[in-house]
Design a protein around this nucleic acid. Structure first.
Lengths: 221, 221
DNA sequence: ACTCATAATTATGAATTCAACCCGATTCGG
DNA sequence: CCGAATCGGGTTGAATTCATAATTATGAGT
């Protein structure tokens, strides 16, 4: 970062600890920092060229997000999820995203329908090409779109928090490989329900989709 | 490593910033620190006899819980909730606690049933005496008990987080005054459903209970 | 050789110090 | 007389320093 910090005035200046937190999240999700491993504060401060103060602030935030577990007096480590955690988290996600699907089916207008179609078509194409990373990315955008149409910011926030925690499992990014076609079929049903403005069917489709997601992880392990 | 018994001497040493965060939460919930008001770091450090470092760490945590809003470069203030936030939060709570009631009705054993009866009897007595503060306290314990019986720690965590945010509205502690009898009746239905091991009815009762809660706040405003 | 006790090292937690920025008041210019 | 720029006080943000507790290493004793 060069010293050419011009007039950063009116634009919302992001705090340093926020940037650090975001960089740490990325590394955790990429499993560069593995679940169970200890956080080396010195190494990170040296690498980022910052002091321990903002780093430790960032760690506190990540801890309250559940990504990191604090061990007072001993340090902190990346959180490890067990089977039980998955069994608990997926039903919650099914419940919350199911509600989103319900609301989205009720509220979506023509423009929303068009965007949904566009994203879904992209998914079909990416599945055809076997582009798993791309599929994963667009899939995420699709789910976010449903939440956005539902229009409940707190609901979106809670879902995103839960999904962040789920990203701690490496399977989460892998399992989809063997499930591209299945996942796509479930999406088709969901999209169909939303376009038909059928809230109940949309909800059921989303819940089923996420329940299948839990099963798929088990199949790998 | 030979000694199997590690240094378990200091069992749950709580970090200073945790204590500070808890004290700040209490003051926020008590509306001693009012929504919209700015946080005076110096005054708080002087009052608590600590330095700014742990205080600022606590503020970061409270911010990620949604209780405080950070304004980079300017400070931070207690979060203010609007009508829209209430409209968004209550349905989520109804959804999540409704699920808890469902699970609780399925899983509760005889001991659970006894505890539920005890707590509910306390509620009846407190309502009879018009002890609003006591009712509020035990009511909270009752809801927590249902969550505990449901046995999903992540679900409990999310519910508690949402309830923490709701506590930002002063109405939340007031509205119950004019709703003691109504609330009690809703609880009776809920308790009856759980004791009868009727998950569907328990879920409906809990959802109804929370929807009524939202309406009651409106009635005051 | 193994175990336990003790010392050295290192890391954590918190206080203190330092720099940069925001806000308000004053002053200068139109 | 009003508006804009500037200066100063005070607060925030981050680095540094210090104290304490934990872990590792060392050495003596069995």
């Amino acid at each position: 970062m060069t010293a050419a910090t011009g007039p950063r005035q009116t634009i919302a200046r992001t705090a340093l600890f926020e940037e650090v937190a975001e960089r740490l999240r990325s590394r955790i999700f990429a499993h560069e920092l593995r679940p169970g491993s200890w956080i080396d504060e010195q190494a990170l401060t040296a690498e980022y060229g910052i002091s321990r103060t903002p780093l430790r602030e960032a760690l506190k935030v990540l801890a309250s997000e559940g990504l990191i577990t604090l061990r007072p007096g001993r340090g902190c480590q990346v959180t490890e999820l067990g089977e039980k955690d998955l069994d608990e988290l997926f039903p919650i996600l099914a419940l919350l995203e199911g509600r989103c699907a319900y609301e989205a089916a009720e509220r979506a207008d023509a423009a929303h329908h068009a965007t949904i179609r566009t994203l879904h078509d992209q998914l079909e194409a990416l599945a055809q090409d076997g582009d798993i990373a791309g599929f994963f990315e667009v899939n995420q955008r699709f789910h976010q779109l449903v939440q956005e149409i539902a229009g409940n910011r707190w609901l979106t926030q809670i879902i995103q928090d839960a999904r962040k925690v789920l990203k701690l499992t490496r399977f989460h990014s892998l399992f989809m490989a063997g499930r591209l076609q299945e996942s796509l079929a479930e999406h088709r049903e969901l999209v169909g329900a939303i376009l038909a403005r059928d809230p109940v069917r949309a909800q059921r489709a989303m819940e089923h989709h996420l329940q299948q997601g839990r099963r798929a992880i088990d199949a790998i392990d």
